[in-house]
Design a protein around this nucleic acid. Sequence first.
DNA 1: CAATAATCGAGACGGTACGTCACGTCTTCTT
DNA 2: AAGAAGACGTGACGTACCGTCTCGATTATTG
Lengths: 211, 211, 211, 211
Amino acid sequence: MYVNVSKMAFDMLTSTKELRRPGRPRSDQSRKAILKSTLKLVEKYGFHELCIEDIAANAGVSKATVYRWWPNKAELVLDAFLSVVEAELHFERGIPIRNSLRAQMIRLSRLFSGKVGSVLSAVIGAGQSEPEMLATFRRRWIEPRRIEAKAILREAMDRGEIRSELSPDAILDVLYGAIYFRFLIGRDKLSDKFVDEVLNMVLPGLTTEKS
Amino acid sequence: MYVNVSKMAFDMLTSTKELRRPGRPRSDQSRKAILKSTLKLVEKYGFHELCIEDIAANAGVSKATVYRWWPNKAELVLDAFLSVVEAELHFERGIPIRNSLRAQMIRLSRLFSGKVGSVLSAVIGAGQSEPEMLATFRRRWIEPRRIEAKAILREAMDRGEIRSELSPDAILDVLYGAIYFRFLIGRDKLSDKFVDEVLNMVLPGLTTEKS
Amino acid sequence: MYVNVSKMAFDMLTSTKELRRPGRPRSDQSRKAILKSTLKLVEKYGFHELCIEDIAANAGVSKATVYRWWPNKAELVLDAFLSVVEAELHFERGIPIRNSLRAQMIRLSRLFSGKVGSVLSAVIGAGQSEPEMLATFRRRWIEPRRIEAKAILREAMDRGEIRSELSPDAILDVLYGAIYFRFLIGRDKLSDKFVDEVLNMVLPGLTTEKS
Amino acid sequence: MYVNVSKMAFDMLTSTKELRRPGRPRSDQSRKAILKSTLKLVEKYGFHELCIEDIAANAGVSKATVYRWWPNKAELVLDAFLSVVEAELHFERGIPIRNSLRAQMIRLSRLFSGKVGSVLSAVIGAGQSEPEMLATFRRRWIEPRRIEAKAILREAMDRGEIRSELSPDAILDVLYGAIYFRFLIGRDKLSDKFVDEVLNMVLPGLTTEKS
DNA sequence: CAATAATCGAGACGGTACGTCACGTCTTCTT
DNA sequence: AAGAAGACGTGACGTACCGTCTCGATTATTG
């Protein structure tokens, strides 16, 4: 991960079409096959049982090729996870805060219930004993979404929908904490209905109006 | 874990004080030394780096003795965790719901910030790829506390403090989800202040009075 | 082995019927069950794969009981072997040397081809890396028979059938070496015919007459 | 053993000098170090006490490398033995049979008395409970020598030195059985004198002339 | 008839080595 | 260079038996 980021950056800088590093270029086919195999196998076995030898074999790639581009299993799984979900789950802006939050939270909870859910839980689980991995996870998955969320919260505060003395971070910890808690630990399934329950409980405490 | 639970059950059934199973009895000294070493080492190295060979060596015990009583590292760590925290963190009853919740949530968040916090996160992390372990964790850690919590919520509903049409499980997912989320994923530290922020946001939505 | 020999000796000395040591006497049933199980399992698995835990389990006996009477697997197997064959295979005396040798060699080679053959080869095999065991084997199996054999050879020398300048030990090494060699290493099966081949080749060199 | 034999065969077939299998080639240095350490340790401790962990450590090699090429301790020791003695102990041809036999038997018995003797007895001992190993031992140690021996016996029969109605296998079982018997079981040491005793006893029965 | 003494079963214990697995690295030839 | 192949040293795994031990129960002799 670290490695390929820097090398990709180098490639981008230099490839004004002609300039590039000597030697055989990186096989994009291999890269994709590795990420695909990783996703497939982590869904099947979970992070713990997953082994890089199997990923390499499954991707028809040599082990050394995996290690050339990712420093360890954790980063690889994280990259595979992000390669699937990175672009999704934006907030709609300019609509009532409840609607915007609800729509995004429902899409998130459905994502958690699907195939990538098992990959996500594997990533967070592994992160509990690998601080660097958790940091990367936060930086590339949690933070981008939170920046957007804070923006719409700020807008809602400006419109007077949300009490502006509240901490946006605390608000989001409460709303999303409920979903993540049920996803990671809870026995109950995530559902659209649960999202509504959460919003019904929490929003009254955030709004300025006395309903 | 599974083994000794069933055997302990057997002991209890048969021990009208005098009856015991034949053969050399299990060494309680070894059992305690193993749990103690496990706690110590998991705090030091985290779950991932922890190895059973080290636990056995540190406890002055043979590897076989560890495997005789615990099927794998995860169960052992879980048992060690529970042996330390199992009896703690009850709710005070007969006082306003906010006070009771606040006191327990603060004690919980302080626990998370302390030494056992790292053991707990290791347990939950490992549980993400071992469903049985997570189930045991829920059964022996989450559920006992939740039963108490539901009882005080029910009392508060009876007293008219909490709207009785709300789902107790959802309420607890919101309140504790925030803490667990910040503990497991969040970048911000847990603090007494955060507990108050959560309660301030959530309780208004739960109460009957419109303040 | 060492233990029970001495204790048996003590028993013999003292049991002029009434005198015996205090405490629960040794269970002869267990002793026999152990030897029987040992024979059965060594035939089935060979010496190497044989384990004392299986012997004890098969004999319905505790492991400690086995170790109380035999110091190790080798001695136990040797004892089991000798308990079956010790009394057999004497030489007939007062008949022509060829007849006496032939009869005993044939009985021996048939014994080798039977069930105890596999036990014997296990014993000798194990003896190759345990000098004490091999010594006991020689003392209790090889030597008693060799003493008899030397006696009939001496008689034959006295009668003038065998050249008396020959070494009886060398004679027996040649005759029986052939059988043991074929038994332990050779690809060819032992047979009565082979015994005759050996005698036909060797006896002319031993006899005084020029046939 | 099985593995490398087949791979060596493959190498031989394909190595018209240039063709070789892909991947990192097997380290010949490791292979030799393992065989050397095996010999050294089996001489020192005997087969039974020998453990593969020690061999690997002594050879500065990983345990996995040992297991990659030899399926078990027995095959490894056998290979080590053969790597030392395989090329030795031929018969001289075109001389009187007695001389040829005597020279080879004396060299053999001296070999048995030396350092490799303990390895050989370990190999034969282990072979008693592992038929495949004994078969390999016969194929690679016994048979090649026996083929030569039969050739010189046949020549001697053609020359009229040996009675041609005798079975060469039986002759060799008698001659070499005596040596192996004394080596494996006998209490007496092997010596040049013993070889002469054996030949003096056996040859008269084999020869055509009446001396 | 109690006290003493040894054996018995069951089975837990500290050990040692097993043979396996995956790690991450390295060496070779090919693309 | 990058890639596939695959051998390498390393280290932990979980297992199997080792030979010893601690129990309560049993079976004898002795006082």
